[in-house]
Design a protein around this nucleic acid. Sequence first.
DNA 1: CGAGATTCATGTGAAGTATACCTTTAGGCTTAA
DNA 2: AAGCCTAAAGGTATACTTCACATGAATCTCGTA
Length: 411
Amino acid sequence: MTQGINLNNFFSDYIKRESIFKDKKILQSNYDPETIIHRDNEIKQLADILAPCLKNEKPSNLFVYGKTGTGKTCVIKHIITEIEKISLQNSLNLKFIYLNCKLKRTADTEYRVIAQICRALGKEIPITGLPTEEVYNTFHSILESEHRNVILVLDEIDELVKKIGDDILYNLTRINTELKNSQLVLIGISNNIMFVDTLDPRVKSSLSEEELLFNSYNALQLQDILKKRALFALRDNNIDSGVIEKCAAYAAREHGDARRAIELLRVSAELADRANSGKILLSHLDEAQDKIEKERVIEITKSQPRQHQLVLFSILSLCPNNEKNIFTGEAYELYMKLCSKINLRPLTQRRVSDVISELDMLGVVNAKVISKGRYGRTREINLNLSKELLQETRKLLESSLDIKTSSLSNL
DNA sequence: CGAGATTCATGTGAAGTATACCTTTAGGCTTAA
DNA sequence: AAGCCTAAAGGTATACTTCACATGAATCTCGTA
C-alpha cells in the first residue's frame, strides 16, 4: 500500500485551499439574478403588459421572440417571481406555469403539454391512456373550481407547433372564452422570428395580442453581464485580464448568447479551481470551450433511447475519423447488422430516417437532404465533433449497448 | 448539342398496428344487519 | 342489501410499421442543327 494518493492529505488540503468561487450558484444556468442589466426596456414593457393580473384583470396574451440566450426566459421568470411575491402579499390566487416544449417525452405532444399543466396545478395525470379531451376538461375544472388565474409560459413553442401543429394553441386560447371564474394568459416564447406568420390567423391574432422582441446582446453588453455575475460569484482578483473579454467575444460570435457566456465562465472557473491555479487564465477558457461541447454531446448521447443510440453508433463507426460524409443507406445497413449482433429488433428504414433527423435536431450530427442526381436522394450525414470527442462518444455507446468492437471488424 | 424523359435511393405523408396504460362495468365474494 | 375486489371490455396516446407516392439532379435519349 505504498502507492496511491493519500486521501487524508488530499481532502484536508482541499478544505484549506481557497476556492475561486465565492458563490457558485450565481453562475449556474438556473440562477435567477436579482437585477438584469441591458434589458430595462423589455422588463418595463413586460411589466406593463402583465401588471393587470394584479388587479384581477386579464393581461393580453403575449408572444416573445429572440435568439437563444438573449434573456427571454430569464426576464420572464424574473418578472414572474416578482409578481408572485406581490400576489402572495395581497393573497391573489395567481399561478405561473413554465413549460419547455422541447423536452422530449415531457412536453412535446398536445396530451403531454396539457397533462404537464394539470400536474403543475397539483393534479396527477397518467402518462397515457386518457383521451386528450378528458385532460382538457380536468384542466378546465381545476381552473373553474379554484378561481385561479393562470399565466402559462410555453418556451420553445415553435418546436412544438412544428411537430404537432397549432391546434393546441387554438384550444388553449379557446379555453379562456369558456372560463367564468378564472383567466388563462398565454405567453409564447420562440427562437424563430418568423414563427407567428406560420400560424393559423385566428391563433395568431389571439396569441400575439402583444409582441416583444429581444435583440441579441453585443460583446460589450455581454462583458457587463459577465463582470456583474463574476463580482458576486467569484472571489476578487482571480480572473486574468482578457478572460472576460474573450469569453464575451466567443459568445457574441454565437449570436450573443448570454447563457453560453456565463456557462463558459463557470466552467473555466471550475477548471482553474481544479488545477489549483488560483486564477482563471485564458487557457482555461479554451479548455472550457471543449469541455462544454463534450459534456453536451455526452449528455445527449446518454439520454437517448437504445435504438437511437445504436443508430448514432452506426454513424460514428462509419466515419471514425470524421472525414467523409455518409448516407442513410450505409448507416442503415450497418445498423441492421449491429441489431442482429446485439439481438435488438431492428427498426424500419422509415423510422431510422426519422431517428436520424431527430439526432440532427439535437445537434449531435448534421444531416442534410441532398439529391445525388441519377444516384438518388438521401441524407448526407456528417459529424462536426472533434476526433477525440467522437471516439469518446463511440466508446460510451459501445459499452452502453454492449457491443464488442472485435466483432465489428468482420462485418 | 441540348431539351426533355428517365432513373435511383430514399425522403415523406397517411393510415394501420402493437403496446402500455386508463376508466368503466359487471360479476362474484364478503360482510353486516 | 351494501360494500369491496377483480377481471374483462372498451377506450386512448405513442412509437413504430406498411404502403404508396414525391423528389430532384445526374444521366440518358433522341431530334435537330
